[in-house]
Simulated scan of single mutants.
Amino acid sequence: MKQQNNKTQKQAVLVVVNMQSKHISQQGLYDITLSLVDETRQEPACLEYNCYSSIDDDSVMEVILFENVDGHQTHMNSPHVLAFQAKYQALDLQYAVQRVDYKQN
């Protein structure tokens, strides 16, 4: 098990976040999420960051590629993410986060 964790820490990780809120429109949530793009893309461990609006429901999806799990953890503790979480806590965001090993085919 420990060997797998070491592998994961060195391997790129794709983070997919799916968000919805009953208190704001999909466009509003998308616009708010875009506020994170520039600063996140400037993080040393961020390889790619894109946001999408679902055509099936009112959710917004973030897809972020980090160099490794540590890079994602650093992102989660960054001032712009912490400020985002504090500012939009009142929106009662419903979200699911999935992290997967990124293997380019």
Rank of each mutant, 00 (worst) to 15 (best):
residue 2 K to A: 14
residue 2 K to I: 07
residue 3 Q to R: 15
residue 3 Q to N: 12
residue 7 K to W: 11
residue 8 T to C: 07
residue 9 Q to K: 08
residue 10 K to N: 09
residue 11 Q to V: 09
residue 12 A to C: 08
residue 13 V to P: 01
residue 14 L to W: 03
residue 14 L to F: 05
residue 17 V to M: 15
residue 17 V to D: 11
residue 19 M to L: 13
residue 19 M to V: 02
residue 19 M to N: 04
residue 21 S to H: 11
residue 21 S to V: 11
residue 24 I to S: 04
residue 25 S to N: 05
residue 26 Q to K: 02
residue 28 G to N: 07
residue 29 L to F: 06
residue 31 D to M: 05
residue 31 D to I: 05
residue 32 I to G: 04
residue 32 I to W: 06
residue 33 T to L: 02
residue 34 L to Q: 15
residue 35 S to F: 07
residue 37 V to G: 08
residue 37 V to K: 12
residue 39 E to G: 01
residue 43 E to T: 03
residue 44 P to F: 04
residue 45 A to G: 06
residue 46 C to M: 13
residue 49 Y to I: 02
residue 51 C to E: 06
residue 52 Y to K: 10
residue 55 I to Q: 15
residue 59 S to Q: 10
residue 59 S to E: 12
residue 61 M to N: 09
residue 64 I to T: 02
residue 66 F to S: 03
residue 68 N to Q: 10
residue 71 G to N: 00
residue 71 G to I: 00
residue 72 H to P: 04
residue 74 T to R: 02
residue 75 H to I: 06
residue 78 S to R: 02
residue 80 H to K: 00
residue 81 V to R: 02
residue 81 V to S: 02
residue 84 F to A: 01
residue 89 Q to G: 06
residue 89 Q to L: 05
residue 90 A to I: 13
residue 92 D to H: 08
residue 92 D to E: 11
residue 94 Q to H: 10
residue 95 Y to W: 08
residue 97 V to C: 06
residue 98 Q to R: 10
residue 98 Q to T: 07
residue 99 R to A: 07
residue 101 D to C: 06
residue 103 K to S: 14
residue 105 N to D: 15
